Simulated scan of single mutants.
Amino acid sequence: MSIGNSPEDDRPSIGRTLQQARISAGLTVEEVSSATRVRIPIVHAIELDDFSRCGGDVYARGHIRTLARAVGVDPAPLVEQYDAEHGGRPAPTPAAPLFEAERIRPERRRPNWTAAMVTAIVAVIGFVGFTMFSGSGSTDKNKDQVAEGPTTATKAADPAPSKPADPKPAPSDSAIAAVPKDKVTVKVSAVDDKSWISAKTHNGKLLFDGVLAKGDSKTFTDGQQVNLILGNAGAIQLFVNGKSIQNDFQSGQVERLSYTKGDPEAG
């Protein structure tokens, strides 16, 4: 919990600044919480300069930036004020040892049943066609075998090898994400840096909780809604229901996001 400004500093506290800006903008705490996805108790606590509910300095800075943008205040001076009042910005801690115990086994790739089904259908059609072709010529082949002897019959029994069906190309990740129309599908890619990611279904089931290394991707699906927390949102590229999501997330920014079925930008 913040102990307030020093006697020499006449600036209003961070919480007081955010509260006055919210009131001036004509917004309630509930409206700010709905717009930023920061829970109502945390918004109240921050306006009282109590940052203990944020879960650490990284999250506190992220909440300050998010709330400041929502009420129309420049977040940079408030973050600098927070750093000055809480011992400055700490040196970055290597993420790998911190989350080593929380790493989970990578999800096994599900078999591509669509491609397997198409291949099976092609094989069945080819077999039926070959059987019909062989059946139509069986009488003539039997006659040739009797009249011409085993040599002719042996030659007739060697059909030309059928051309194998071309294998279906494996669909790309973006194509897979666009296939299920009855579900919400979110692909998270760490493009510029690593980021801590948490993903849950609509009923709170945990899909993933750990560090996504730079260059790695994760895809999450649910029948109704996927809820995300991005610890370093500026490093993340999102694809929702097969569509790229444009954002202006900053490095180190914490974002809480939820997506449902359909066009993610509609409405």
Rank of each mutant, 00 (worst) to 15 (best):
G62Y: 00
Y82P: 00
D182E: 14
D144L: 14
D192Q: 13
I176L: 15
A91H: 03
P180H: 05
I125R: 12
A123R: 15
V226Q: 03
I3C: 08
G15M: 11
A115F: 08
S189T: 15
S33Q: 11
K243W: 07
S251N: 08
K143S: 06
G210D: 03
V38G: 07
G87S: 02
L238V: 11
S6P: 00
D222V: 00
V184K: 07
M117D: 10
D158K: 15
G129H: 13
Q250H: 11
Q250A: 15
T28D: 09
E100Y: 09
Y59L: 14
G55Y: 06
A91Q: 05
V188D: 04
S244D: 06
F220Y: 15
T119N: 09
K200G: 03
D248Y: 05
R109C: 08
T221L: 07
A60M: 05
V254C: 02
V211E: 11
N142I: 15
V240L: 07
V79A: 07
T151H: 12
I46C: 11
L228T: 07
L257R: 00
P167I: 01
P161A: 10
T36Q: 09
I197H: 06
F133C: 01
V191W: 05
P111D: 14
P169L: 06
K163I: 09
I121V: 15
G4I: 00
R109F: 11
P75R: 04
Y59R: 15
L18N: 05
D158E: 14
D182P: 11
G242K: 09
A25H: 03
R37T: 13
V79P: 02
V58H: 13
I197L: 15
E85T: 04
A84D: 00
K214T: 01
N232A: 10
V128T: 01
L98A: 05
G26T: 09
V58E: 14
P75D: 04
I236N: 09
G87L: 02
V240Y: 08
Q20K: 11
I64H: 06
G204R: 07
A45H: 09
A25Y: 04
G135Y: 12
E85Y: 03
L238R: 08
G215D: 04
L228A: 13
P41Y: 05
E148Y: 13
S6K: 00
I104E: 07
G210I: 03
G62N: 01
D74A: 09
G215W: 06
S258P: 03
L27G: 02
